[in-house]
Design a protein around this nucleic acid. Sequence first.
DNA 1: GCCAACGTTGGC
DNA 2: GCCAACGTTGGC
Length: 143
Amino acid sequence: MNHWLLKSEPSTWSWHQQCQVASEPWTGVRNYQARNFLKAMRLGDLAFFYHSVTDKKIMGIVEVVQEFYPDPTDEKLQFVCVDVKATASLKVPVSLAQIKADPRLENLPLIRQSRLSVMPLSKKEWDILCKLGKTEINESDHI
DNA sequence: GCCAACGTTGGC
DNA sequence: GCCAACGTTGGC
C-alpha cells in the first residue's frame, strides 16, 4: 500500500468540510505530475490532508475509496480525480515549520517542490509524520 | 501583498 | 524545438 499527501487551500476545500461528507471527489488537479500520482493511487491507500497557504498544517488522514476516473470539472477530460474519505484527524496538526525543522523529512516533495499538490511519501516519512501528529492508524484495517 | 519557483503557451 | 512572456501556486 502506498502513502500520499494531498494539498488543499482551506478556503477552497477544508478538512472540516471533508469530515462532514461521506467521501469527496478530489478534483481540480491540472498538473501532469500530480495527475500521474492520482492514477497510481489504489483503493485503501492513505493520504495526509494538508492545508496550504493560510494554515500550512497537516490536518488529518484520508483513504482512497474510489480509484481514478476522468475529472468531471475538466472540460477536455485530460485530467483525473479520485474519491477520498476522512478516516482520522491528527490529534496534533503537524505544521510546515515542524516538518522543515526535522532533518528526516528534508526530502519531502512538500519542501523540495512546493508547488506540487499531490505527492507520494515513503512509509518511513509517513510513520514519522503520524508520530509527530500523535496519531496511530491501524493499517491492517485498510488493506 | 510580494515575489520566487515553475509550468504552460505561443511566436519564431 | 527554443525561449520569452505569462499565469498560478504557495511561502513569507
